[in-house]
Amino acid sequence: MTPLHATLLVSALLFGVGLAGALARRNAIGVLIGIELMFNAANLNFIAFWRYGPHPEALTGILFVLFSIAIAAAEAAVGLALIIALYRHCRTVHLDKVNSLKG
């Protein structure tokens, strides 16, 4: 097994764990944690292909990961603000109990 295979396997398992968390958790913050894990699995893929790819001098993977980290930070900030607004409105972050569209 080459190092590229090993890194991609770690990334796939990390994505699976994050997907399980995002689908199965009932707490909104737990779902957000799962989404962050999936983001990071994708970033690990970019770095792995940059490191073991044929043209590492182009730095494409590095720059893609930097932009992706910035977007993930913005997503986390907006998502947590939404969760706080939801908590203020419904007094809960339990997603099964947030079941009204109006008021």
Binding site: R26, I29, G30, A76, Y87, V93
Partner: peptide, 19 residues
């Protein structure tokens, strides 16, 4: 740290069992 802040700000609702 942002996630920890959000957990502490929405603390009243985590008394119910989560999953």
């Amino acid at each position: 740290i942002l996630i920890v802040f959000a957990i502490l700000l929405t603390r009243g609702s985590d008394s119910e069992p989560d999953g």
